[in-house]
Amino acid sequence: MMQVQDRPLGRGPGPILEVRDLRVEFPTRRGVLTALDGVSFDIAPGEVLGVVGESGAGKSMTGAAIIGLLEPPGRIAGGEIRLNGRRIDNLPYEPMRRIRGREIGAIFQDPLTTLNPLYTVGRQLIETMQTHLDLSDREARQRAIGWLEMVGIPAAAQRVDSYPHEFSGGMRQRVVIALALCAEPKLIVADEPTTALDVSIQAQIIALLKRLAREKGTAMMLVTHDMGVIAETADRVAVMYAGRVAEIGPVRDVVKAPKHPYTDGLMASIPPLDRKVHHLAGIEGAMPRLSAIPRGCAFNPRCPHVFDRCRVERPELLDTGTTRAACWLYDPASEKQAPELFRHA
């Protein structure tokens, strides 16, 4: 059989987004830091890919690279990003600008700071739509009201002329979602869209995102460190560690039966709600700094199953049966093979 695990689950012809061997570098005074190294994944039309990992694992950076807005001096130093088969990582500013908003929408973390405080939400919506779509002022205003209704803003026809500070955090994130979707992109990059919100609001926002993505057939890259959000929303999940993809596969398999020792540690560190625990499980040590990523597998100093090969050779994503994991335990040629102990069931 063909390998299907790194292929998107979605329907339709090709993937909407293909990321291949993406490498992002930051030149600094003390040498070049590699923030992303060999990151590869696909997203199918209408599919939700969750991206998880600790802070600094490169989740947000991957999103920024896709929308072409890496903070300088960061730059894409290798690999490629394709949108609907068209290469976009090497586009000049102007063609890339026309893609942003129109073909790839973005949602940021903190709704309190993402909206310009000096303009009404209606103006910001109208301006975005008129940048990308050929709309008269009246049509654009009508659609702006329509979008506010769609994201669940009550009395949208009045609220369209309100300023961002007149909305609560959750309402503002709804406005941000409307702004990301209003030019009807086929892909949304959502960077921690619920992290800055109250827990009670988080579920509403996730439900809204999920519903809109389904209704509009929008694919989504959902960056978060919240496994609960991933489990609830994503079709597949990519686990990142030190700027690399550690494991990628269908969300059920990755959550229930992780194959990479890092994913295993990550899942084990989520405290169960159904029984009392006396110690919170964690992973020994800390993620390496970008300037000190060890040779071989980046996780090897913290890995309970480490063996000689891990310290020398860097593992590629290998088929594990259910997911694909960057771990030598799954290479039949390795002297050590995966133990059964990861199966949490």
């Binding site: 942003r100 940021f108 702004l179 030019a183």
Partner: peptide
């Protein structure tokens, strides 16, 4: 600021970002 990054992420042109926002 984030709202400038977000304005760019919405695909607004340089003129709108720099002078409008």
């Amino acid at each position: 600021t984030d709202y400038i990054k977000f304005a760019r992420a919405r695909g607004l042109g340089n003129r709108a970002v720099h002078f409008g926002h």
